[in-house]
Amino acid sequence: MNVTQIKKQLGYLCALMLIASTTSGADPVIFPSAKYPDYPFSEAVAYGGVLYMSGDLGTDAGGKLVEGGIEPESKQTMENIKTTLKRHELDMNDIIKCTVFLADIAEWPVFNEIYASYFEGGRYPARSAFAASGLALGARVELECIAALQSGDE
């Protein structure tokens, strides 16, 4: 087994350990989407001390995609994440993992600069980024985050 294969196996093991450690036997707490009540997903689900947030786009309060491309969409997406966290009495420092979906991976540097500005002191969550085709509403970016709940927030 080479180093890459070992790292991959360790990643799988860590993910399984996280799932096992967060399984408390309690029912998940589901938070419906206020912005998109007619769509079949929840804004977030709390379970086992973790808040799993649905992917968010750079949409305004009315659910309309902001204009101007990757930069304004990225800023609005990050603000939307902050707003969701605030509703759950959390902040950006509580995020432990993000997954980024970009319509064009060439726009990653622009998104990355904006993303980095939302985290204090270089304290960044784990993150993956993918190029994706056909994001909802014709968006340039979608961001999905997982946050650690503070004790008793479930």
Rank of each mutant, 00 (worst) to 15 (best):
A34D: 15
H88V: 03
F101E: 02
A148E: 07
A136K: 13
P72C: 02
G121F: 04
V45F: 03
L143C: 08
P37T: 10
L102M: 12
L137D: 10
T22Y: 05
A26N: 15
M78V: 04
I6F: 09
C98V: 07
D91S: 08
L135H: 04
L137R: 10
G122Y: 09
S151Y: 13
A132H: 10
E142M: 14
S74A: 06
R140T: 10
I19T: 13
G62N: 12
E71V: 08
Y47P: 00
A20M: 13
P37I: 08
I114L: 06
T22G: 10
P72E: 01
S117W: 06
E144M: 15
P28I: 09
K97V: 10
C14A: 15
C145L: 06
Q150I: 10
P28M: 09
A26G: 06
A44I: 04
E73N: 01
T99H: 06
E67R: 08
A147Q: 06
L13F: 12
N80Y: 02
K64C: 05
M17L: 15
E79I: 08
A61Y: 07
S128K: 13
R87N: 14
L13G: 11
Y39W: 10
V29P: 03
P125S: 06
F111R: 00
E71R: 04
Y52I: 11
L149R: 08
M1P: 05
K8L: 11
G152V: 12
C145Q: 03
R123F: 11
G122V: 08
W108P: 00
G58A: 05
G63A: 06
G63S: 05
G48P: 00
D104C: 02
T23W: 14
G25V: 12
D94N: 13
V66G: 02
G48V: 04
E144K: 11
H88C: 01
F101P: 00
G55I: 02
C145T: 13
V141D: 03
Y124K: 07
T84M: 03
A126V: 03
M17E: 13
N2F: 01
S21Y: 10
H88R: 01
D38T: 14
V45H: 02
F41W: 11
R87F: 05
G122W: 07
T77F: 00
I146F: 06
E107G: 01
E142I: 05
S42Q: 09
Y47D: 04
Y115H: 08
W108L: 13
M92T: 08
V66W: 02
S24N: 14
P109N: 09
D104N: 14
F119P: 00
R87A: 09
N80S: 02
A46K: 10
N93Q: 12
I114Q: 02
P40G: 11
A44T: 04
L13I: 15
Y52R: 09
T83F: 07
R123S: 13
E89G: 03
A147T: 07
E120S: 13
G138Y: 05
I96W: 01
T4A: 12
S21V: 09
P37M: 09
Y124W: 10
